[in-house]
Design a protein around this nucleic acid. Structure first.
Lengths: 271, 271
DNA sequence: GCTTGACTCTCAAGTAGCTCGAGACCCCAT
DNA sequence: ATGGGGTCTCGAGCTACTTGAGAGTCAAGC
């Protein structure tokens, strides 16, 4: 029978960890002196301790280990657990590798630029969103503002309030400045399916814009400099080895009269 | 100005996380109503939030992000930080991969054996340890017990108490049952350098057994079945792609009169 | 028998990055 | 005035321990 310090020395596990394993029932001491509370361990407990360590080494949590050890090892269950773990770990590995490649991309970027960019591109998960939208081919990007105005003008009096900032979807496979196929979407509750025509006589369509992963960045400033944001997001997508997966979106996050200037969010569905 | 729920919707960050970022100074709300405590955010804060997310995505902690953002980005420091992170992540990746291969080795083992072994092999870090030792070539493994007895008989009267269980080192490059080159080591304090000869007339030598990683398992039971443990540890080392790195050790963890039977720990320095 | 120093005990708090819940307050529409 | 949904603060919970405070224990030397 060893005292905890000696047992710690021969097992090479810190005293505090041994106490912890004891307290949570994983490795109770062989005996506890009822007078002094001293824990006493025996060498015969090393196999159990080693099994705990080995399972921990496989990435199992102490709780999982406990149920395995006390459940007398139903081999099938252990197999299932390990298969799960294996999937989990290989998922973690690919995630880490992606993180590594992101870090390295960022390092290259810093070495070439000498500094960090003002705006970042991040990957986000978009929820599917139900909208009322109008789609039209316009001959100049500035007409988009008019479309939005018309849309609001039709919806507000009808008592339909957008539930999130409105946004545009660009359906052109490539950009043509004098023939833009654009859809203006107003997020609304799921139950809203009809709306009056716009002042320009256009009809709303109710549909659900699909969700999924998207590369997202924001542009802070006038519309004439928005190309920066598009350039940034494009090279980020390339750097991270992703692919376009749907029409890009442009969300208008500020009121037209915001003193801090307009803020636009650009979202490219990817992968 | 958005309330926290709206800002959460457009940033797709949970309210609780926004509050947390605000509380720890990373992203304080643009304004807080002093009457109600309501937090108000503006779209102009999205760039900062995105930067936080991007840096978090690179694996930086919130504290590191804070110091980078508030320290106005000394590019050199950021570079250093990222290089550190990069090394850290690739280290984590190789560790995870090793864990994965251990899990898969274990899975294979279960599929072939149908159950889990009673004893485990684990990798531990050995500390260098100062010992008094006697080395001799004996013609039968059973003579090792006599050597240990002689060693104790010499040390105890001289007031030298071992500080840890004594162990044997096997110096043979290969095993020969009738000619075993064995060293019996008694761990002692650093300051102990001399001891009387043993009853058999053998001289102690003071030396430090080097530390390092070792594959460790314990054998519970008589010496005649210790081959199981050697077999186990040998195949474990092979399965995990390690190499022997020094003479194996056998530590005797129990007193000869322990009612639960003897317990022996076997350690193979590796890599 | 007393002191000293090493060891051990219990209990509480800290770690990172949030999430969740309780109980109270606020805002807006009817 | 009321009701429902949003928001507030504060505290606990998550993992696997580590660290520290304050008190009790053990063995050896005087």
């Amino acid at each position: 029978m060893y005292r905890i310090g000696e047992f710690s020395k021969i097992s090479r596990i810190p005293v505090s960890a041994l106490r912890y394993y004891g307290d949570c029932g994983l490795l109770p001491p062989q005996a506890i002196d009822p007078q002094t509370g001293y824990r006493y361990y025996s060498a015969a407990q090393l196999p159990r301790l080693n099994r705990i360590l080995a399972l921990k080494d496989l990435g199992l949590s102490l709780e999982e280990i406990g149920s395995l050890l006390d459940g007398e090892l139903p081999a099938a269950e252990l197999r299932g657990m390990l298969r799960l773990k294996s999937a989990e770990i290989s998922h973690a590995v690919t995630e880490q590798q992606q993180m590594l490649s992101r870090v390295e991309a960022r390092l290259r970027l810093i070495e070439s630029e000498g500094t960090m960019p003002e705006q970042e591109v991040v990957l986000k998960e978009l929820d599917p969103i139900h909208v009322l939208s109008i789609r039209e081919v316009v001959d100049a990007p500035t007409k988009i503002g008019d479309l939005i105005g018309d849309g609001f003008a039709a919806l507000m009096p009808a008592g339909v309030m957008p539930t999130a900032p409105c946004f545009a979807l660009y359906h052109d496979p490539e950009f043509k400045p004098d023939e833009v196929d654009v859809e203006i979407a107003f997020p609304v509750g799921d139950e809203v399916t009809v709306a009056p025509n716009t002042p320009g006589g256009r009809a709303f369509q109710a549909r659900t814009v699909p969700g999924g992963k998207a590369a997202v960045t924001v542009h802070h400033g006038g519309y004439d400099t928005i190309d920066e944001a598009y350039g940034r997001i494009g090279s980020w997508i390339a750097d991270n080895g992703l692919k376009f997966a749907g029409p890009p979106q442009e969300a208008y996050l500020t009121q037209p009269d915001d003193p801090a200037g307009p803020v636009t969010e650009i979202r490219f569905p990817v992968e």
